[in-house]
């Protein structure tokens, strides 16, 4: 296959998980967004190598893939922290104090929205609406939804991850 980018010559060969995803969509170019979704589900973000491999496999210029990966908000180009915190800032959550929740997490963990804590433990993201408007303000941690959050309850929720970690590491929690 013709190499599209000079720098693509020396990148690592795609791993089997990546191959499975491309094969799942018979390497069809129009399924690019679905492939990006699946890659992100697998790796939790879009590793640079995977985008380069996609460019090769689908014969689509890397810049186009990069354009799509940055146009759509769901895609992440950086490796996220171990725990993903998502604060909803939809209108219903906004009027019930959603921004205060995001501020509080930012302050407690010293992390800005869209970034990861220095120890790699937590990433903070904000979204426009999760469709759980009736129980706002809403916080999602590692896929679990917490409703009617207050600045007080934020710390308790964060403590849950500490407990999980202590359990895993065998520390009495």
């Amino acid at each position: 296959m013709k190499k599209l980018l000079p720098s693509a010559n020396n990148h690592k060969p795609p791993n089997s998980k990546f191959k499975t995803i491309v094969d799942r969509y018979s390497a069809k170019r129009e399924k690019l967004i679905s492939m990006l979704h699946d890659i992100q589900e697998e790796f939790r973000y879009l590793p640079e190598e995977s985008l380069r491999s996609l460019s090769n496999e689908l014969s689509v210029p890397l810049i186009k893939i990069y354009g799509i990966a940055t146009f759509y908000k769901s895609f992440r180009l950086k490796r996220p922290g171990r725990h993903m915190l998502t604060v909803c800032l939809g209108t219903a959550c906004h009027v019930r104090g959603g921004p205060r929740i995001a501020d509080e997490i930012s302050r407690v963990l010293d992390v800005k929205p869209g970034e990861t804590t220095k120890d790699g433990e937590y990433s903070l993201e904000t979204v426009n609406c999760l469709g759980c408007c009736a129980i706002g303000p809403v916080l999602v941690m590692d896929g679990k939804i917490f409703g009617q959050i207050t600045t007080k309850s934020v710390k308790n929720i964060l403590k849950q991850t500490d407990k999980d970690r202590n359990k895993k590491e065998g520390v009495a929690g």
């Binding site: 129009e30 967004i33 990006l36």
Partner: peptide
């Protein structure tokens, strides 16, 4: 099923179509 990827403008029908075609919405 085609999954969207967090772009509000894709609710507009021509942008939605572009997105199904695998392009920027």
């Amino acid at each position: 099923i085609e999954r969207g990827a967090g772009a509000f403008v894709c609710g507009e029908e021509t942008a939605l179509i572009a997105s199904i075609e695998g392009k920027k919405g």
